[in-house]
């Protein structure tokens, strides 16, 4: 359980990034935080693993205030994958990178080996085991960063822009993987601009603008609400745009996925023929 209570945060340069955010995330929820650059999304999730502490208000993970626990201790519970993998990677080989946190947490070598093998194969990186992360492409480095966090099996997984640099197949794998994590009871929080990815994942959506939460709800409801998406500077999914342009034909407007779209269109054509 993550409880964010009326949190304000001001960076040392005087910029107020969060202006009164309250939020409760239950165990096992799948959340997507969306909004414009500078809306406060990354600042908010950095509060959950304690990297940032509120200027005012409180963040508690499982009932413990993030002020009262070290980031090192909290990170055992909260895994965080950064937006830019180069902020996170530093080891000589992909294998060492993925094993790094496990060694820090004091896992046994035998278990480390197993976990590393598991995480690498999960993210399609096995062939790069002995390669330097810096020899890999941008998309591959992002996956190494993911593997290194998933390897220690945290209860809460925060992914800041997980789909950056990922091609369609990797995104599809990532989607299946997130769904799998979620069905195992893990809390998954993604920060993303990728509306098409959200449309396919169907998480609970939180829209942020100017340091505040402006709306939350199901992906279908929030991403097809024209006023909300405009306010949060989001381009609606392409399918939703198509249905918006056809709104005078009295078709349903809460459609974000191609298969839903097909069903709606087939129904309409059958009725009218």
């Amino acid at each position: 359980m993550i409880a964010v209570k009326d949190v304000y945060f001001t960076y040392p340069n005087g910029v107020e990034a969060l202006s009164g955010v309250s939020l409760a995330i239950r165990d096992g929820e799948f959340i997507a935080i969306m909004g414009q650059n500078g809306a406060g999304k990354t600042t908010l999730v950095k509060h959950i693993n304690g990297l940032l502490k509120p200027t005012k208000g409180e963040v508690a993970v499982d009932g413990v205030s993030t002020r009262k626990v070290s980031v090192a201790k909290l990170s055992r519970k909260v895994g965080f994958v950064f937006q830019n993998p180069d902020h996170q990677l530093f080891c000589e080989t992909v294998e060492d990178e993925v094993a790094f946190a496990l060694r820090n947490f004091g896992f046994k070598e035998q278990l480390i080996k197993k976990r590393v093998t598991w995480a690498l194969s999960l993210l399609n990186l096995t062939r790069y085991r002995q390669t330097s992360p810096f020899m890999l492409s941008g998309g591959e480095r992002k996956r190494v960063a993911l593997a290194s966090v998933l390897a220690w099996n945290p209860d809460i997984v925060i992914l800041d822009e997980p789909t950056i640099g990922q091609d369609y197949q990797q995104k599809e794998k990532l989607r299946q993987f997130i769904v799998q994590l979620n069905t195992q009871g893990k809390t998954v929080i993604i920060v993303t601009h990728d509306v098409e990815f959200v449309a396919e994942c169907n998480p609970h959506v939180i829209l942020m603008a100017q340091g505040k939460i402006v709306a939350e709800g199901g992906a279908k409801e929030t991403l097809t609400n024209r006023d909300l998406v405009t306010q949060a500077f989001i381009v609606p999914p392409q399918v939703s745009q198509i249905f918006f342009e056809l709104s005078d034909l009295k078709l349903p407007t809460n459609v974000i996925d191609v298969y839903d779209a097909r069903k709606v269109l087939l129904d309409r054509l059958e009725v009218s023929s």
Binding site: G35, Q36, N37, N84, G138, I164, G165, H193, V195, V235
Partner: peptide, 10 residues
């Protein structure tokens, strides 16, 4: 990939 970190409207 010049806009990978930028929101969709941006």
């Amino acid at each position: 990939e010049p806009t990978s970190f930028i929101d969709p409207v941006g």
